[in-house]
Design a protein around this nucleic acid. Structure first.
Length: 851
RNA sequence: GCCGGAGUGGCGGAAUGGCAGACGCGCGGGAUUCAAAAUCCCGUCCUGGCAACAGGGUGUGGGUUCAAGUCCCACCUCCGGUACCA
């Protein structure tokens, strides 16, 4: 063994040696079933970018690896896999520039990132590696899409069912029937204004547009009507909301999802249009303010706009509509937004009091929410107030705030009050409190046939197609006669065609349209058809990857039913908070569909979720190439070793907090590992130190050992890795000062350090005389009695100020402690002869004497 | 604007309502060395004092409590998310 020649802590050689050992021996291969209890630890798998691993990745991966190694030692059958979310824009952008097939770039990036990840010594079962772009994986992503396509949502049962079970009304013609069915599929085509990003040459989901620009790249996004595939996620709004309750996620992430789903309860009210027979339906959460509705606003895209506009206002309305249509989302949501609008010339009748109120159009009313029309109550809605003020529309106060100052301001028309209060100017409802009013008026509207209780969600259906090359092709055909048909499951997978030119077009025609031979096919019955040329978004693959890990090569199903039954749910999921709404919501949605159809046996996939915090640059700024503060993990591993890297990332601070990098901090933990090494090995000879030998530990050492075992165990369970490491530092500081280092004390210590710094611990374990890896050794148990201090030092306070310290036996009674405290000269001086009124003894901390 | 989270030494951070600053970094001093690196030892919240010690101190102002970094109220700052959702 060449390593023995050198007594120094030669981390590079040690780490390579053990990484080789683990791979060669398949140390972390996970059996599909076992008598042991299971534990599934999942990392958010990375996109294999050309830039390689970022120091942010190993943070979550190290945390999950510590838990995995710990749980194995605690006797669990641990599933801890890794894979690649490998479809997506960067590889394709590179293809556009260089003509290199994205599969080539992707493979290269994967190989590099796998090397990087393996260089950190994570205990993944590499036999379960998955890659979302593998044809064997794509097949099942397409298969799940077909499940969406071939399912409908049964509202009464609140679950998806096969489309074959859809009740179809009688008397429909063949075409009507097909249309009816298509309107109920959970995957459907829609021709609607979408977020089109000219720079990326693709449409984006609402979730991918942030502040009017694309989330990736920050390019402008405009609204443009296009034919798109949608997934009916809105059907699952209520279940996605309910499902959050039982999950062990941070409240803040749950809240983000709740807000994104955005449930609001109110009423739909019909306003008759003056001089016409039809009505405009509005949604409001404040039906109690109906008496204060002084005008209506409908979205420019509302279907009644043309019909109700009077001849006089036609040109102005036309102009406004065109203006609104041209505006990008950025313009519409511009921060310095100024309300705009146009009167239609038409009037509506307020159903509660018969008042004629003008109907306007404005782009502050969104066609995609509620009914695309509102009743405007300027006295009690900020937006309406702003609009009414600008266009000099009447403002009628109908809610009196409880606060008298606010009430006065309101009366003067200086305050727009949106809170709850008492009704005024509201006919027979005057005097009611807001919540009571809401209930009564909703019932009244229902009785009069004017409206009804309604629930709305902010969540929209998920725009699921992209005009890009590097994604899963849809298993869909469009026939010459305009029918949409799905491939049969037996025809999967549908492979991407090879292309010369990957460039997206400005017209929005997808690159796949250029693969003429691939696109045009003739069905067995002679019908000509074209393949769908859109592809699926990157989210598709990550929606179900956690299932494939359980059964990565199954050719007959995405996952074997028994296997998912054993492994689900995921016991611990670690990843960045940036996926709080996107990936986690989509993925839960897919899981629920698979649950409804009987392919998985839990309602939710991710039982516990932890979001690691961001690692900032040494300058406390977000790491970025332009700031020049990016830390390269390869370099850290080369200079200090993987164990130091792992240990440092865990020592920086709490896992969930954002924290800045410090190379000096890396050196600090590296010195700690050096000390650990020298605690066992003679650096001169490379031999085990003479002091490391079978011996009885002295009392202090034994106590500290057990305190450390206890602290580290508890801290791993609580994900407080930073404090676990400081306890181990305290232990090493102590033991390094002892000449005799009892071997079994050292061994127990090496075992508890091993999840954190596995390479050096394996090496020490071997040098301590073991022939097998320590990965399967049982976790050392602590003895609470041995961990207990014999004597405790307690502070003595007089009136809350510390005056002295006393040392008492660990099992001293409160009376004994009180006496010892009162006996102190300093305490007596501080009491100045007064009698104690009350003596509070808090073992083992302090005594407080109140005089 | 709204919704989260956080403000503690020179820095990262620690502290079931119970001795604020564990552990690490940095810094100062010493040992070792021809010298340095490495290593080891001592010190290191602030103010005053040679010292023992005294006083102050967890963003700001109030409150609850024998006792508050921790709980309550009001405010300030920073970070993250979000954006006319009626």
């Amino acid at each position: 063994m060449t390593l023995m020649e050198n007594g120094q802590y030669d981390f590079n050689r040690i780490e390579q040696k053990w990484q080789g050992y683990w791979l060669a021996n398949k140390t972390f291969k996970t059996p599909d079933s076992s008598a042991k209890p299971k534990y599934y630890v999942l990392d958010m798998f990375p996109y294999p970018s050309g830039a390689g691993l970022h120091v942010g990745h190993p943070e979550g991966y190290t945390a999950s690896d510590i838990v995995s190694r710990y749980k194995r030692m605690r006797g669990f059958n641990v599933l801890h896999p890794m894979g690649w979310d490998a479809f997506g824009l960067p590889a394709e952008q590179y293809a556009v520039q260089t003509g290199t097939h994205p599969a080539v770039t992707t493979q290269k990036n994967i190989d590099n990132m796998r090397r990087q990840i393996q260089s950190l010594g994570f205990s993944y079962d590499w036999d379960r590696e998955v890659n979302t772009t593998d044809i064997g994986y794509v097949k099942w992503t397409q298969w799940i899409f077909l499940k969406f396509f071939n399912s409908w949502f049964d509202e009464t049962q609140q679950k998806a069912r096969p489309i074959s079970e859809l009740p179809i009304p009688d008397g429909l013609t063949g075409i009507e029937r097909e249309k009816y069915i298509n309107n109920h599929r959970l995957a459907y085509e829609s021709e609607a204004p979408v977020n089109w990003c000219p720079a990326l040459g693709t449409v984006l989901a609402n979730e991918e547009v942030v502040g009017g620009v694309s989330e990736r790249g920050g390019h402008p996004v405009i609204r443009k009507p296009m034919r798109q595939w949608m997934l009916r996620i809105t059907k699952y709004s209520e279940r996605l909301l309910d499902g959050l309750e039982g999950l062990d996620w941070s409240e803040s992430i749950k809240k983000l999802q709740q807000d994104w789903i955005g449930k609001s309860v109110g009423a739909e009210v019909d306003f008759r249009i003056d001089g016409r027979s039809d009505v405009i339906r509005v949604f409001t959460t404040r039906p109690d303010t109906l008496f204060g509705a002084t005008y209506m606003v409908i979205a420019p895209e509302h279907k009644l706009v043309n019909q109700i506009t009077t001849a006089e206002y036609k040109p102005a309305i036309e102009a406004y509509k065109q203006d609104a249509a041209r505006k990008s989302d950025l313009d519409r949501t511009d921060l310095a937004k100024d309300k705009s609008g146009q009167f239609t010339g038409a009037f509506a009748i307020n159903p509660v009091n018969g008042q004629k109120i003008p109907i306007w159009i404005s782009d502050y009313v969104l066609i995609s929410y509620g009914t695309g029309a509102i009743m405007a109550v300027p006295a009690h809605d900020e937006r309406d107030f702003e609009f009414a003020t600008k266009f000099k529309l009447p403002i009628i106060q109908v809610v009196q705030p409880d606060n008298t100052d606010d009430a006065e301001l309101c009366r003067q028309g200086k305050l727009c009050f949106a809170g709850d209060g008492t009704a005024i100017n509201s006919g027979k409802f005057t005097g009611l409190k807001t919540p009571e009013f809401k209930t009564q008026i909703t019932a009244w509207l229902e009785k009069e046939g004017l409206g009804k209780k309604a629930i709305n969600y902010k969540l929209r259906d998920w725009l699921f197609s992209r005009q890009r090359y590097w994604g899963e092709p849809f298993p869909i055909l469009h026939t010459e006669d305009g029918r949409v048909i799905a491939l049969d499951e037996s025809e999967l997978p549908l492979q991407l065609p090879k292309l010369e030119d990957y460039k997206p077009s400005e017209s929005g025609e997808p690159p796949l349209a250029k693969a003429v031979e691939w696109v045009n096919i003739t069905l067995p019955d002679g019908t000509k058809a074209k393949r769908e040329t859109n592809t699926m978004p990157q989210w598709a693959g990550s929606c179900w990857y956690y299932l494939r890990y359980m059964d990565p090569t199954n050719p007959a199903a995405p996952v074997d039913f028994k296997k998912q039954q054993y492994w689900l749910p995921i016991d611990l999921y670690i990843g960045g908070a940036e996926h709080a709404v996107l990936h986690l919501l989509y993925s839960r949605f897919w899981h629920k569909l698979l649950f409804d159809l009987g392919y998985v046996s839990t309602q939710e996939p991710y039982q516990k979720l932890i979001n690691q915090g961001m690692i900032l640059g040494e300058d406390n700024q977000k790491m970025s190439k332009s700031r020049g503060n990016v830390i390269n993990p390869d370099q850290v591993v080369r200079d200090y070793g993987a164990d130091s890297m792992r240990l440092y990332e865990m020592f920086m601070g709490p896992l969930e907090a954002a924290k800045p990098w410090s190379m000096q901090g890396v050196e600090g933990v590296h010195r700690f590992l050096q000390r650990v090494w020298r605690m066992v090995i003679n650096p001169e000879t490379g031999q085990m130190l003479d002091g490391v030998k079978p011996a009885d530990a002295d009392e202090t050492t034994l106590r500290l050992l057990h305190q450390t075992l206890k602290k580290v165990t508890g801290d791993i369970e609580g994900f407080a890795f930073n404090t676990a490491i400081s306890q181990m530092m305290i232990f090493v500081n102590h033991l390094s000062r002892q000449d005799i280092r009892p071997k079994d004390v050292i061994e127990k210590f090496v075992l508890i350090l091993s999840p954190f710094a596995p390479h050096v611990c394996e090496e020490l374990w071997q040098r301590l005389g073991h022939t097998e890896t320590l990965a399967c050794e049982p976790w050392p148990a602590f003895d609470a009695n041995l961990a207990k201090e014999k004597e405790i030092e307690m502070a003595v306070q007089v009136l809350g100020k510390i005056k002295d310290k006393i040392t008492v036996g660990a099992d001293a009674t409160d009376e004994q402690i009180q006496q010892a405290a009162l006996a102190s000269e300093k305490v007596q001086a501080a009491m100045a002869g007064k009698q104690p009124k009350k003596i509070i003894v808090i073992k083992p901390r302090l005594v407080n004497i109140v005089v």
